[in-house]
Amino acid sequence: DMIAARATIAGEGDDVSGTVRIGAPDGFGVAFLAKRLGELTALHRELTIQLVPVPRSFSLSRREADIAITVERPTEGRLVAGKLVDYTLGLFASRAYAEANGLPATAAELGRHTLIGYVPDLIV
């Protein structure tokens, strides 16, 4: 409200301008955000958005990002945080793999399957 009041007094419009750096996990940034940011910048021609992958640790105070999308809620700093969505993971297999190897019926059976996943040391 304060910013809106100041803009009204100064005679400024509702134009959005400047640079905003958004930090997001690779998958979310590439699969979800990137294709939507063009629409936002088309509406606000003076707005520049920098989409950066968020590593395990980053600092909003050092301007590594202005907005950060993370899997876990931040525990340090004076930040405003809100939940965007529920997040779940799943296991997937190609039809050819499933036909050749079958599908596991229990978690214990996963050990006999070839899994492709994240680097364990980089998982938050």
Rank of each mutant, 00 (worst) to 15 (best):
I3G: 04
I3Y: 02
I3V: 12
A4S: 07
G13D: 13
D15A: 14
V16T: 15
V16P: 13
S17W: 11
T19L: 09
I22E: 04
P25W: 07
G27R: 04
V30F: 14
F32H: 11
F32W: 08
F32G: 10
F32C: 11
A34L: 12
G38K: 07
E39K: 14
L40I: 15
T41I: 15
A42T: 13
A42E: 15
A42I: 11
L43Y: 10
L43I: 10
H44I: 13
L47W: 09
L51M: 02
V52W: 01
P53C: 01
P53K: 00
S57I: 12
F58V: 14
L60F: 09
R62F: 10
R63F: 05
E64A: 06
E64G: 03
E64K: 02
I67A: 07
I67G: 07
V71E: 08
E72S: 05
P74K: 01
P74S: 01
T75C: 00
G77M: 02
G77A: 05
L79I: 00
V80A: 02
K83H: 09
K83E: 15
K83A: 12
T88Y: 09
L89I: 14
G90V: 06
L91N: 04
S94D: 01
A96H: 05
Y97V: 00
Y97G: 00
E99R: 05
E99P: 03
G102D: 08
L103K: 04
T106Q: 13
T106N: 12
A107V: 15
A108E: 14
A108P: 09
E109P: 05
E109T: 08
E109S: 08
H113T: 13
H113Q: 14
H113D: 09
I116M: 00
G117I: 06
L122R: 15
